[in-house]
Nucleic acid binder design. Sequence first.
DNA 1: CTGAAAGCGCTTACAG
DNA 2: CTGAAAGCGCTTACAG
Lengths: 364, 364
Amino acid sequence: MALRSRATIADVARLAGVSTATAGRVLGGYGSSREETREQVERAARKLGYRANALARSLITGQTRTIGVVAGDIQNPFYASILRGIADVVETEDFGLLIMNSDENVEKEVRAVNLLLEKQVDGLIVSPCDTRNARHLRDLHASGVPLVLLDRAVAGLDVDRIATENIGTAERAVEVLIRAGHRRIGVVAELVEEQEGGVAGFIRRGLAGDVLSTDTLYPSWQRILGYLRAHRQAGLPVDPALVGRVGSYSADGARKIASALLDRRDRPTALFATDGTMSEGVMRSIAASDLRIPDDLSLVCFDDLEWMGFLSPGITTFAQPRLAMGAATATMLLDRIRGTEIPSRAVLMEGEFLLRGSVSAPGA
Amino acid sequence: MALRSRATIADVARLAGVSTATAGRVLGGYGSSREETREQVERAARKLGYRANALARSLITGQTRTIGVVAGDIQNPFYASILRGIADVVETEDFGLLIMNSDENVEKEVRAVNLLLEKQVDGLIVSPCDTRNARHLRDLHASGVPLVLLDRAVAGLDVDRIATENIGTAERAVEVLIRAGHRRIGVVAELVEEQEGGVAGFIRRGLAGDVLSTDTLYPSWQRILGYLRAHRQAGLPVDPALVGRVGSYSADGARKIASALLDRRDRPTALFATDGTMSEGVMRSIAASDLRIPDDLSLVCFDDLEWMGFLSPGITTFAQPRLAMGAATATMLLDRIRGTEIPSRAVLMEGEFLLRGSVSAPGA
DNA sequence: CTGAAAGCGCTTACAG
DNA sequence: CTGAAAGCGCTTACAG
């Protein structure tokens, strides 16, 4: 029963009767060595149960073949799928994957980034909590650490990023409802970051085409922008009272906001849920009500969760290609790690329209 | 704009006018140092933007403060929640978390374990693909690496493990259906590992009380055992034709098996789905049929997925405490890493009964 | 192709 | 409390 202390290259070299440099060359697969020498060393290594110590190697090469990811919550299907996409490409390249949660909390994000940096990851994928308060990310980039931003951008930080084309996709989603004849469309959205003038101010500016730097907006605010555009395009008025702000990434918060909307005397005839978590909350609210989809209420969601397909009726939604997003993120990061010097890229992915049965004409 | 190459302890020591040993002591928080010295060093470190290199530290201390996890599929809600539970305790202790997928494939599992070991993780959590073919895990344990098994056990490997009390929980689940009056209860289960005599042979032996070493059985086989016990207890015959074997961790496979069961002339009046993936497939099958829950078909599931709560009717199920399972797994592993010498523990968690609306009397 | 030596960035006895 | 020296397990020039 071997002890924890394993054989080192020195042990192997001794047994094989060569120098540590030679043993290192064959075991590490670099430099060149005679066939015969190689066999000797390999035999010795096998005999001793040698396993490379990546720490020592990394200390010299300056590369750990490990990347770090800071996600909001790995348990959320959105992140879980993206992580799987990342893991798939990373595993192909024999890289390790260090994962941490931020819970959308900047301090936790900072701590996570620091921990990953101390562990000398070769690059970082971060889904930033805050699009403005992100000095740590700017410093990171300035210090030359490969970085790819996921789902969100950061003001004044020009690095590779990947996200959903939120404005356009949300606009199409709301269009689906407008085309079906809906005039009062409620929204349930996170909208965590404060905007000048609050929701009402944002709506006013959005309708006036006065919202600038839209790509450093939080996804849910971008989706509201799509909602506004669809209305303007159709010449429909927007009732600010129908834009439900949850203020956090909470399904239960979404349930409450949705219930408040549905309890109104002038309740909306359709709802737009701006992501998976919001959709879950909205569904809980509807399930607890007497309303039936789509007869009493139409629904369009954002992001495709497994249950949306087997509910009856199915839920019409715009799927984000999460696995592909993850894979693309990892590929971009590996590119940078390998030293690509091309200008930073912003990859925006369209949501895929999944027509199911949750939309009908109002009062149909 | 600082370059990638960061300040080292030597740089800080030089600027502070002390030795590297002293600088190391204050920056690393070990040994003792004068208040004044400490301030000097810290000032220098701040000025240079010093950040510790955990690699160098780990090489000396022999600890990386990183643990590795090999899960079946991090995208699966079962693993995603468990990982979150693990991450929560691990982050508290300032440990890193290296995560890999096995896709229930032994070769991938072996590769993952090797990669993690080369990266010198302090310990490993593995959800083993194969309860018998697991030499790599036995060797691992023999070499003294802290190891905790998740969800599944390995024959002849006496290490800490955590799992659901599958037999008892499944027995209770099937009891719920029997008490409601069901006599023909179908099962949809993975049952990936071959058993002597196949499903029919296993049923025969199970009813005869002839299945030994039940705790190294795959979870789905254990759950079948619970199904059999409930029948025996109630004096009900078991029809092997009603035990649907999917043979893989596939929701679509489960959908097909469920549909085959429901298409039978003598179709079951109730279904038991042995885990989340199976439940999803079963739901897809039911959604595509004309059957209504619970009037035409009763259903009990295993594991609680978000949608089970807001479907109407809700799905009666036995929830696995996934977050707590993850947390307990991590806690056990950290215990071992800290050197606890107590005998190995097997923590079996009961499923929590969630009574919702998917069960009624047959033909009601 | 191979070896002796230096060194990656830290921590750890050991003196003083 | 502090410093000089050694060393963790590798890889990398540099000779030969």
